Computed example of a mutant assay.
Amino acid sequence: MSMSEPDTLSTAEAAYTQRLITSERSGLKRLLPTQAPYHWNLRSLGLGGIRVLDIGCGIGRNLAVCGAGSVGVDHNPSSVAAARARGLVAFTADELIGRGGVGRFDALLCAHVLEHLTETDGTALLASYLPMVRPGGLVVLITPQEAGFASDPTHIRFVDADALRAIASRAGLEELHNYSFPLPRRTGRVFRYNEFVYAGTVPGVG
């Protein structure tokens, strides 16, 4: 992320990367494939077989299930290094400059990022990367519901289904889906891993 962010002092540091790694290995996650439903959801949207630009890729949890030629970008150098250590292709925003091109990717994924940003910065972030997605390409936006939002002190703005639709509309996207996953919407108040999922397309024909 290349613009000013209110949570930069936490999410851009090595300690935040370590927190992501620790969380990935804690509790039931050590014994059960808890990410499997979320990876299934990404594949069901089509991200498993196409070139995806994963904005805010972190340590590569979602990037790992995207198609060949996919690239992650994150403002935390430690997270980028962790993703690379997993054999993934990831860059900081500055490193990505000059490596991408207009229409290079088939899709854009922005998962659990917008809740870390102000409305203005979130809109600007999306606008800055959309030119790298081909016309007709897919855009997937994912944010946590109430329990998930409350679980992380670096979250600064609750972005629900209507807010995702508004962000996408300002970006000129054409909506395909807007739903709650993996459980019904009301569950998000107690189940921290329930998500808002928006999918739309970039105008034009690829």
Rank of each mutant, 00 (worst) to 15 (best):
V133L: 01
V73D: 00
V139W: 00
R99N: 08
A166M: 08
P153V: 04
L63P: 01
D74P: 12
A83F: 03
I55G: 01
I156L: 14
L109E: 08
I55V: 14
L31W: 15
G188R: 05
Q35I: 15
T143N: 06
A199H: 00
D121T: 15
G204K: 00
R192F: 06
T120M: 14
G148V: 05
A15L: 11
A166L: 08
R19Y: 14
H177V: 13
I167T: 09
F105A: 00
L28D: 12
Q35A: 13
A150R: 14
A171G: 08
T34R: 08
L164V: 08
L183K: 11
D160T: 02
V113F: 06
S79F: 04
S10P: 00
F105Q: 00
L9C: 12
G101H: 06
A85P: 10
R186W: 09
G103Q: 00
R84V: 15
T22P: 06
G200A: 02
P153C: 14
V197I: 15
A168H: 07
G87D: 06
A68G: 13
L114D: 03
T118Y: 04
P33F: 10
F149I: 07
F196R: 01
H112M: 05
L125E: 10
G148M: 14
E146M: 10
T34E: 06
T8I: 09
L47I: 10
F191I: 12
N194K: 02
T187D: 03
G136N: 03
L183N: 08
R51G: 10
P37N: 11
T201C: 02
S169W: 03
S23D: 11
D106F: 00
S79V: 05
L96C: 07
D74E: 09
G58N: 03
Q35G: 07
R186E: 05
Q145C: 01
R104Q: 02
D7P: 12
H177T: 13
S128C: 05
A93F: 13
N178L: 12
R165E: 11
A163F: 01
A127C: 03
L88H: 07
G206C: 04
S4E: 14
R186L: 14
G48C: 10
T17Q: 12
L176S: 06
L20W: 04
G122W: 05
E175D: 07
R170M: 09
A161T: 10
Q18S: 05
G172Q: 13
E115Y: 03
A171P: 12
S4F: 11
A64C: 14
K29R: 14
S151A: 12
L31A: 10
F158E: 03
P135I: 09
F191V: 15
L96R: 00
A107T: 09
V73T: 04
S2T: 14
P182C: 13
L32Q: 10
T118N: 08
L130Q: 01
N76P: 07
A93N: 11
L45N: 02
P144E: 06
T34V: 08
I156N: 04
L32V: 03
R99M: 09
A14G: 11
T123Q: 13
S70H: 08
A147N: 04
A147V: 05
Y16V: 05
